[in-house]
Amino acid sequence: MSQSRKMTCHIHLKKGVLDPQGVTIKQALENLGYDDVLEVRSSKVFTLTFREDTDGDLTLRAQEICRKLLANPVIEQFTVEEG
């Protein structure tokens, strides 16, 4: 299967939405001495492998999948990229 048949979807919490995991990880980093880290935001990554004969624009298809299921539009936004 060629590389171009894969799409990677990144799901992040929207700006301004509290990320309790990020806040807690930042505190742990401070405890480890990394006081130069201003903020930690967590995100999710999904890699979709499409059948080689999938028709149409895979970017549009991956975006549709993000909108329908992978991301919750109330709190999250997404980006998709090939590969």
Partner: peptide, 17 residues
């Protein structure tokens, strides 16, 4: 119900984790 759109909003992780 939130995910279904029958009610507005979403749930985040508890602030205490």
């Amino acid at each position: 119900l939130l995910e279904s759109g029958l009610l507005p909003g979403a749930m985040l992780r508890n602030r205490s984790l």
